[in-house]
Amino acid sequence: MKPLDLGEEPDDGSGPLADVLNRICARFGLDYAAYAGVNTVDDSMHGVVNYPDDWKAHYVEHGYQLIDPTLLAASRSVGVVDWNRLRDFDSFQKVFRDAAEFGIPTTGLTIPVRGPFGDKGMFSVVSSRPDEEWYRLRSEILVAIQTEATLLHDRVMREGRSMKIMLQPTLSVRECEILQWIAAGKSQFDVGVILSISTRTVEVHLRSAREKLGALTTPQAVARAIGMRLIYPI
């Protein structure tokens, strides 16, 4: 397995991943974000962070990626891991004390992402807000950053040659049907009426279709589905 290189960028030509992290930080009012992922199929590791360069250098120099509880412990969780939960782990003090010395806030959380082939990603966000404010922000942005974390992970995994083929979106008949009606200009409510299902069911299938297509928005998902000939252009 290739060692974790925090500066490594997949060369897919769709812009550097660090830009994605910067955009997420700006949109949700966060200080820093970090992503690390293990591609079990192509046997590679990827990492990208927007931490200051001196902390990045210090982190890699000390091999903290090998002991960092936000990577190792958090990757085995199902739910979001609040960093407070990691205090009991041996390496917590070492990594977090150093982080604090470099001016990196120690309030944050890690979202573990699991892919279908045993691939795993850890998406962390950091905030310098006081506790009360942080917990309010946390509950407001959690749904959105769960989605961002999976999109980011899937994007990185698709850089792997074998994974790219395996991760070809497989939409269900229902998902295609709903995207086709959306492409025909129907609202989610309309689609629910046409297919005799609840609006919530339309939404849950649409969300799944968006994420399988690696799309943030429904129009983007429709465009990709047409491009991949999963639905017909109208």
């Binding site: 199902v78 992402v113 279908p116 749904v143 769960q146 989605t147 974390a149 999976t150 999109l151 497989t170 939409l171 269900s172 008949v173 229902r174 849950v204 299938h205 969300r207 799944s208 994420e211 399988k212």
Partner: peptide, 21 residues
Amino acid sequence: LADVFADILQGEPPLRSATLW
């Protein structure tokens, strides 16, 4: 659902979403 309960989905691919457990 993706594996042992695949029969329920009648051969269809399962829902996959970050906000669906």
